[in-house]
Amino acid sequence: MDKIRASLLKKSIATKIERRGKILSLSCLALIILVVFLIFYFVASRGLATFFQNHINLWHFLSGIQWNPGTIGTNGQPAVGALPMIVGSFLITIFSAIVATPFAIGTAVFMTEISPRRGAQILRPVTELLVGIPSVVYGFIGLQVVVPFVRNTFGGSGYGILSGTFVLFVMILPTVTSMSADALNAVPRYYREASLALGATRWQTIYKVVLRAAIPGMLTAIVFGMARAFGEALAVQMVIGNATLLPHNLVSPASTLTSILTMGIGNTVMGSLQNNALWSLAMILLLMSLLFNLIIRYIGRKGKLNHER
């Protein structure tokens, strides 16, 4: 009797284990959070040096069209103009999203609404598999197939925005497709039943009811694909030509933030303007990735509100 009383009043082994376990798991989580802050801190501290140590004007950096850090451009300003890369990154991102969207949504609708059986058995496993294909493989195929195709069809060297767009289109297609299919699947079954019961055809139901209800989810899928396209480095670097020139057509060599970064980091001396300028490009990448994240959150919140209404 007294033994039990006493045991209730002192800390049991379980309580000690619990405290240790909680601290242990919290430290794991804290470590991950710390890593994120370190990433931002390290990239920002290098990327900002361009402006604070080398006194490059931010506006000249963003709008300049000559990229040859360490030298003076034709306009008398240091040649640290990142516009060609910024434009390159945005162009291939937007183009690949524009091309991929109809294909992805069409396939997703087919998978979920027209032929769910074939969708589940063939299309879904195949798309999920392709999400996992390494980007260098896409780059290699781009080099072997897309670049020669573009060269023979449109002329030029074959390297450029167009080839980059093709490669990224195929690359983000599986991701956008499977996320769109998830969004369509999340539309409650009774939406369709109600519409069909009112005499609407299948297409009217898809177009007027299902697609509309799934808009937030599909937008998320597209933005997600764009984020992936914007951040993709090697596959793009292999087919875009890596010329730091403002692209004036789609088939001349161009460059993106990621391609110049991968090319350049190893060939510059840490702490030099050449190197700092590259870190400024990395910082833009980081900020864009944040922006994509914010957009996805915003869409998610909007979507939730619409559903509640």
Binding site: R5, S7, L8, L9, K10, K11, S12, A14, T15, E18
Partner: peptide, 12 residues
Amino acid sequence: LDINSNDIDVYE
């Protein structure tokens, strides 16, 4: 003992 108190080891 009041077992609904913080002094009590809940697991025990």
